[in-house]
Design a binder for these strands. Structure first.
Lengths: 347, 347
DNA sequence: CTGAAAGCGCTTACAG
DNA sequence: CTGAAAGCGCTTACAG
């Protein structure tokens, strides 16, 4: 490997001079140094630089599932800001596993100046250690049970789920099912609680068999939908707690030839790229995605630049009911109900 | 920051012993050392370790667009193998920019043991420098004009585009348009050449205004479709060269109320997650995705482990015509044509 | 098994 | 502006 010493020797200067030239400082023999660099095909060793200076100019973003379009958008937003500010972005995937997250974070600890994290579960302890090791952490989409000391960018999961519940109730549904995310994650728990709370306020009970525990993956949306359809008394409406499970549900309903919205109503949390092109276009709870990444990266960068930690900042974004055509009054005698405080919204 | 020295002092041993314990070697005071580590919340500094040992146990994967589901799947495949083999995966996004790719690769050079790369263009020079710096590089999905010295995992782009052309011709289309990718990328060029070659063999000419240069992004698929529709004599069929542009085309056709397949036939390269649920389900050229990532990572890992470079290995995977319902004979008098060698395939 | 010591490739006060 | 020198936090022959 060519090192700075090789360059220095060839250019007839000291390594310090090469270093300065590389860092953009004015140097007498700049030209000669540059020629030596080019000739030798020299690349500075970022690892050595980091060890000495402690700066990486790099930030990590650790998410549970890179193949989920929601996280992909979020990453896109984060990246645009990172790039603009001169940081390299390293993206890592935990595959919804706390163990994997722990290994990944330990690995990143001195290799990045800061981390944006969507923790696998609300009970994870590694983020605490990372912070303790002096690496700023900003939560996005998910937090910890006692995560108040961290900066965070979240959405109003409870509110969003309430909007979904309200929409279904307003159409007259009584037999409403939910396919939830893992209850040990912030959005899993929040959406579950919000949905239940809203139904309870309308005196609608959600029997155990209508409450299916999914895992935010497509397969669980598919599976649990099939189980719901197989029930002696199936629901007339389903709320799926994220985009991938909505896709799974759509496929299951399609496979079983259940017609939306005549035979079943479906509303999902998260918009779908192709939602408007589906037949029927599917009604969803929408929320900012790219913007969450942008805000999280801004928070992280300002945190990395300030000397003292300062008080943690929490951003909570609003969701929006996006009415399309996958929800209708339930089949049979039940009619439309008036629901207090319900406003329909649409694109 | 707690260092190995702090741990050593607390445990009453030398730093060397702590280091050995960390690396899993048997040590007399293992227990005491571990207690000191836990007590201090010590994390080994991966940067220092790398500088000394030269090993990172990390690989990078650099792709043009992480939000493209094709690359997301590819990453998923690569990751499963990396994890299985004890490597951490760092994912980077070039946003289809050679400049960004150059900066990213220079940044990764000593931080990873190897790189999987889908170069922004076939003319990129940085991959050569990376390899020269002693970092193994494997190309996936895309290569360089003179990329034969590198291991690679590609698909038969020409063959896939020919399948698409043949399908349209067999249905009787004569006025066929293509929205291509950038011609300075391997798949952009390959699909373009294959499509044209097949049409030429059937003595079908593709007039200039039927050949639209897209950029693999959704917006260009949308835009170019609108332009095609605005032509005095619009085509009766469109071939879109990747998934995102197919989505753009679908949205444009939907917005303009052009009915598929009665008024227009559409076939895309790359399958779409929701393709079967669309109305009509869209016909595509499908290809392995996760598998490409798996193969590329296997290639990279074996390359990183062998001492001598060895001869480069090239893997080329086959595409598959997946007939659904978005293509039909053109409207009007033209009838179905017999096409030599055409076989329909389906799911 | 253990410890003292050298060194990975840089950066950065320090003195000139 | 320049160079000599120390040191970032580890690992690893080497001698015991």
């Amino acid at each position: 490997m060519t090192t700075m010493y090789d360059v220095a020797r060839l250019a007839g200067v000291s390594p310090a001079t090469v270093s300065r030239h590389l860092r953009g400082q004015p140097v007498r023999d700049a030209e000669r140094v540059q020629r030596a660099i080019d000739e030798l095909g020299y690349f500075p060793n970022a690892v050595a630089r980091t060890l000495k200076s402690g700066v990486t100019q790099t930030v990590g973003i650790v998410v549970p599932d890179v193949t989920n379009p929601f996280f992909a958008s979020l990453v896109k937003g984060a990246e645009s800001i990172a790039r603009e500010q001169g940081y390299t972005l390293l993206l890592c995937n935990t595959d919804e596993s706390s163990e994997r997250e722990e290994a990944l974070l330990a690995d990143l600890i001195r290799r990045v100046d800061g981390v944006i994290l969507a923790p696998a579960t609300e009970q994870d302890e590694t983020p605490l250690h990372v912070r303790q090791a002096g690496v700023p952490v900003v939560f996005v989409d998910r937090s910890l049970v006692h995560g108040d000391q961290f900066d965070s960018v979240l959405v109003d999961n409870q509110g969003g789920a309430r909007q979904a519940a309200r929409h279904l109730v307003s159409l007259g549904h009584q037999r409403i099912a939910m396919i939830s995310g893992p209850l040990n994650t912030t959005p899993g728990r929040g959406r579950y609680e919000g949905f239940l709370a809203e139904l309870t306020e309308h005196s609608i009970e959600l029997p155990d068999e209508y409450l299916r525990a999914g895992d935010f993956r497509e397969s669980s949306g598919h599976q649990e939908t099939l189980r719901l359809l197989a029930l002696p008394e199936p629901p007339t409406a389903i709320f799926t707690a994220n985009n991938l499970m909505t896709i799974g549900a759509l496929k299951a309903l399609h496979d079983m030839r259940v017609r939306l919205p005549e035979q079943m109503s479906l509303i999902g949390f998260d918009d779908l790229e192709l939602a408007p092109l589906l037949s029927p276009p599917v009604t969803v709870i929408d929320r900012p995605t790219v913007e969450q990444g942008v805000l999280a990266m801004r928070l992280l960068i300002s945190k990395m630049r300030e000397d003292s930690p300062g008080t943690p900042r929490h951003i909570e974004l609003e969701t929006r009911l996006c009415v399309r055509e996958s929800c209708a009054p339930p089949p049979g005698p039940t009619g439309r109900r008036e629901v207090k405080g319900h406003r329909g919204a649409s694109r």
